[in-house]
Design a binder for these strands. Structure first.
Lengths: 206, 206
DNA sequence: AACATAAGCTAACGACTGTAAAGTGATGCG
DNA sequence: CGCATCACTTTACAGTCGTTAGCTTATGTT
């Protein structure tokens, strides 16, 4: 609508537009919160670009969407990684990872749904998965977790957090008449119980 | 394609078609496993009907989809209810409910996703929620659960199972290099840990 | 200054969508 | 037997979509 006519990119670097298109696609799905909003023309509008211009950088819509998903998985992994890095003790790292994960899901609802709606997401999540599994293993080694299988229990935690991330906030307490159900305590409860962490509340720092 | 020309419904009961349309819509989304397949014309094709005929029974597509969702929520609740009714002890009821819930999600992937993609699902899930919460409360009363808040912990279990139901089967072990991760044991582990059920393995009947 | 080319455009296609309007033909009642 | 009504149908419109073909124009090189 606000047609502030784009300046064409300099000669050598037409690849600049590729990044712009990707960003446009991501902000489009994030702002509309609608999985189906990710159309070729929609992205073009968001980027102030003509639709066919996208074909110079992505052979078709499917490839563009895949690029969005791949980028999103990296963003998620990075977010979890830095959250873990900010903590020292393995149990605290675990909790921080869980918080970062759920935060991502809640802050980018439609995008997160899309990430797990398409098949083949598991391979993209492998990176983050390994990170968390290591952390849990260290908890076991430190004797503060009763788990006997770090990978299996990591999967369980992942599934549970995925559930929390998918059930959006407004639905939580309102209809189900849950009293105080604040998120940090909730996440800590879930993770502690599933990983059998019985250690002292070093996690309680929230 | 196989145009086995429909017989028109008798005079009084034009409402028969309403049910046929609903069934057609459900089988359509279930067989295609695609959320976006639920179009007015697609449903019409599935029901061997002309598209505008649907308007005699549903004022627009949105209302048809809502009817599908409402019906699906009832189906889910009914499935969970009967699964629980087949068990005696409260802990066994709890586990049966979880199994039935996840089964539904896995057997109707696209439909399940649609149920929780649209807003306002929480009010529809209230029925099932209450059922499970009661069951957990009985576990607490019987002294086999360490939980202190049946409703809150039911929500946690729900979220976790929702996560399991949403992560589809093939993705489980394959990419994550988990060994044996059979579903019944997995569900039992999740539910036992989250509800703090420490009782004797009366649940082990699987 | 001339020219090749990169960067992006407009126009157009075929297919699909939800929905409105108007038609058809069997059915059951008076 | 006639006729109104119900249960649908065909036709049509306006809008969206992905994608292709071909054009324009600025840019960097020679």
């Amino acid at each position: 609508m606000t047609d502030t006519a784009r300046k064409r990119n300099p000669r050598g670097s037409g690849d600049l537009l590729r990044e712009e298109i990707l960003v446009a696609a991501i902000t489009l799905i994030d702002t509309t919160d609608d999985t189906n909003a990710l159309t070729l023309r929609g992205v073009a509008r968001q980027a102030s670009i003509s639709a066919p211009s996208i074909y110079s950088h992505f052979d078709n819509l499917t490839l563009l969407v895949e690029a969005v998903l791949q980028s999103s998985f990296h963003e998620l992994a990075e977010s979890v990684r830095t959250a873990m890095a900010a903590e020292q003790q393995p149990a605290a790292k675990l909790l921080a990872a869980g918080r970062a994960y759920v935060d991502f899901g809640w802050q980018h609802k439609a995008r997160y749904r899309l990430m797990f709606a398409e098949t083949g997401y598991a391979e993209n999540a492998v990176e983050t998965f390994a990170l968390v599994a290591e952390s849990l293993q260290r908890c076991i080694d430190a004797g503060i977790s009763g788990s006997t299988d770090a990978r299996a229990d990591t999967w369980i935690v992942w599934a549970a957090l995925h559930g929390v991330a998918t059930l959006d906030k407004p639905a939580r307490a309102d209809y189900l008449r849950l009293g105080a159900l604040d998120r940090p305590a909730l996440l800590e409860t879930i993770i502690r119980r599933l990983t059998l962490i019985h250690g002292p509340p070093a996690l309680a720092k929230l």
